[in-house]
Design a binder for these strands. Sequence first.
RNA 1: GUGGCCGUAGCUCAGUUGGUUAGAGCGCCAGGUUGUGAUCCUGGAUGUCGGGGGUUCGAAUCCCCUCGGUCACCCCA
Length: 419
Amino acid sequence: MARSEFQSLPGTRDLLEPDASRFRSLVDLFAVEARNAGFGQIVPPMFEDVGVFVRLGEASDVVSKELYAFEDKGGRSIALRPEFTASVCRVYSQHRQILPWKTWYAGPSFRYDKPQKGRFRQFDQVGAEVIGSNDPDIDVEMIALAWRFFAKLGLTDVTLLVNSLGDAEDRPRYLRALQDFFSSRADELSEQALETLKVNPLRVLDSKRPGDAVVAAEAPVLVDFLSDDARAAFERVKAGLDALGIPFTVAPRLVRGLDYYTRTAFEFASASLDAAQNALGGGGRYDGLIENLGGPPEPGVGFAIGVDRTLLACDAADVFRPTDLSPQVWVVAVTDGTEGLRLVEELRQSGIRADRSFDGRSMKAQMKAANRSGAEIALIIGDDEVASGTVSVRTMRGDGQQESAQRAEIVEKVRSLLS
RNA sequence: GUGGCCGUAGCUCAGUUGGUUAGAGCGCCAGGUUGUGAUCCUGGAUGUCGGGGGUUCGAAUCCCCUCGGUCACCCCA
């Protein structure tokens, strides 16, 4: 394309206006919702000791294939974070907080994937985590936070899938049953599914290949293997969602990509995104993760939402439109002095969005720029105005009206015209 | 990582069976007499046709490699 020596690397892109502002607004909106729900912000580093992430589960692709890992000049093995949860757990282990600790975050993560629509190597997430409570009501609260966020954006076509992945003790029993089942049907499975079966039988359930899906549909279901405790917790979660009026579908074959999840798992998808990457976000409970990272045996639950995909869904649904970035006033200065400089500064100090042209452009060119900028008012100041202590005020809507105003009262004049 | 499709000005695209100085619309810039936009008229600038190699008298058009994008698988946000 455009001839330039360097381009942004695969899977990365440059956010320009109006997308950049929209991006910020989205994060701001999430921040408000999270704060209202009692979450404080956390800003962990973007890279950690590689071990922090490896403990997420070596069977997952996120860790085994997609980690941006390298050695720094001090010989440390470090990795760019592929997600936030592990960092949050590490932070808690390092700086103990009063429990339950509720925290939210926003920022980029990195995965060495093959880029696709809605899938980037550097991608942004907003998310929240709660450490130190087993209460299923917290699970409900997390889902409610995400749900409220989507609603505030104007996304109405979000679907919620929930499942329970059981406790650490339930899992092995289920995995055995699953393994037996798939082994007995091995001849019907794709080669890839058989590969997956070796490293992580759970994920075979998730296969989108038609042949695999048929077999998976008949596979034993995790819900039948839950301990009494886990079952009760799951019931409580479902009852909580009902109580809040949040619609959901139980998805017995929902498994999440990272291995650390226990009990509640959930995922949000958008019907507006017909692409394969239609998952807006997801999360669940990770009751063994902190201990696994060398911390105390505290339970945790959290979720992350993909900012890029959410924005894509907003585009598809035509909601959460970009805000107007236009200046309110354009100063057209054709004097040799510093009138333009002073006038713009005065307007800005008064909280009015104002801008101007540079490089001594002709009045016609400056008026053109004023029009293009979307400003409602053009303030014209030339030798005549300077001499008479006035400013010409021109409204830019339609054919435009022009009048003269006293230089000393210009801010007031502009304010009254804008209101 | 595997496979399909695509890659021409800032943007959206056209470019006929390979044939002379590569086009359109939008955008941008400048004019249409003295200091006035959006409309209208006129003129102008910008592309090593993603990059490299090959076939050919001749390639944006054919072949190979490569880079990038996109879609599906995979994976996931």
